[in-house]
Design a protein around this nucleic acid. Structure first.
Lengths: 226, 226
DNA sequence: CTAATGATTTAACAGTTCGGTAACTTTGAG
DNA sequence: CTCAAAGTTACCGAACTGTTAAATCATTAG
């Protein structure tokens, strides 16, 4: 999962802390939203469906512990990663923090590098969860984790190169991939193969998954269309 | 799991810190062993098979990071909880810490109540992992605690490596495990074994538990399917 | 400590599938 | 209409996996 796809919700009543964190996370390519109290946080969270929520402990309206408890009560946030921000000397609050379902807590003040590193550690935990890597387009479904393709409910297993080629094309339906690009992404930059190799593989995909989905752009390359 | 059943290994070169932690943990009923450097820690860990290992970062012989890395390389400690002890101002080390597979870090100095609470939080994580002591998939049941497999009500006992391989594959039915991944998770990152080793073990599993459950994805790896 | 037993790995070979090419045909953009 | 680009097909060598037996390693009972 690329930083680009990751949504993070920061919640703190001190806007300078928010700005500091936001700046650092955005520089890494994360998509960041903020809220300044618990109630607002819950609102935003429902809309944004963030992957990670960072909650300050001390906040007006609804404190971090309570906010966390509320979030955890919604099935929607059952597996969202929630971490607490805490000042160094209020560490007794950690006790309640873990009990309420927090995944981690982060001590303020924190250096940017450490902060980012912590976020990445949390992210790794998220990725370990079963975020099934399944792509659907039209009546075709590609399951990268199981290495199978499903068409009309039928399981089709493809050889490696065919699977990788399909996987590339279907990753952006409608977008045209230049022959050159296909070669470098599926075959690798260094391998040298003949002119007809791609064609042959495309043909096999057409054979197995239906002609209509694979369109040729003569002189350029191929695209997958639903 | 009662405190009484929990084995904790504390590793620090300052004996007064060790004593402090040991005293507090034992008062709660944990079974505590100590070591004063990384090498000793690995030795003791192998014998004790602790549930939790607390490593100081700064140590003679082998520092915390390295010790952790070594431990994580042994399949035996794959799911052991490892936490780092760190002084407040050396927090840059957290970066390496998480990357090397640490589950948490604890800042020194720490109050007894907070310390115990952290340990309990870690423990909760352990119980969650271990809770799935019995995994069922299709007509096969794996009892991780007793090292036993049940198929159609029949108890089948597998040798260790076969069991671990099955255990890995069945932990996510349907998901494909790359050969590389299988090697690192069952055999450990450093061990070097021949090409056919995995195949042979797969064959034995097929022999004992039925061909149909173990599918080969050529060029990639294997998966368990119910 | 030793032998015996069983587990694990290696080695060698067989079998299969995959991937790539060659040679030829067809297509479609200009 | 032309002809470079793409489609098609059959085929062969390479890459992988399966299978077996034998060698090595580890563990345990005696």
């Amino acid at each position: 999962m690329e930083p680009n796809d990751i949504k993070i919700l920061l919640v703190d009543d001190e806007t300078d802390v928010l700005d500091f964190m936001k700046y650092n996370l955005e520089r890494e390519g994360f998509w960041v939203q903020t809220a300044t109290n618990g109630l607002e946080a819950i609102d935003v969270a429902k809309k944004l469906q963030p992957h990670i929520i960072i909650l300050d402990l001390m906040m007006p309206k609804l404190d971090g512990i309570e906010t966390c408890r509320e979030l955890r009560n919604m099935p929607m946030f059952k597996s969202t990663i929630i971490a607490f921000l805490t000042a160094r000397d209020e560490d007794y609050s950690q006790i309640a923090g873990f009990e309420v379902g927090a995944d981690d807590y982060i001590t303020k003040p924190i250096k940017p590098r450490v902060f980012i590193s912590r976020i990445r550690a949390l992210l790794r935990r998220l990725e370990n969860n079963d975020n099934a890597k399944i792509i659907k387009a039209g009546d075709i479904e590609v399951d990268r984790e199981r290495y199978i393709v499903i068409k009309n409910g039928m399981e089709i297993s493809l050889p490696r190169k065919e699977f990788e080629l399909l996987n590339l094309l279907i990753s952006k339906p409608g977008r045209v991939f230049k022959r050159e690009e296909i070669l470098s992404k599926v075959w690798g930059n260094d391998t040298i193969v003949g002119d007809r190799t791609i064609d042959v593989h495309i043909r096999k995909l057409r054979e197995k998954l239906g002609d209509e989905n694979f369109k040729t752009i003569k002189g350029i390359g191929y695209k997958f269309d639903a």
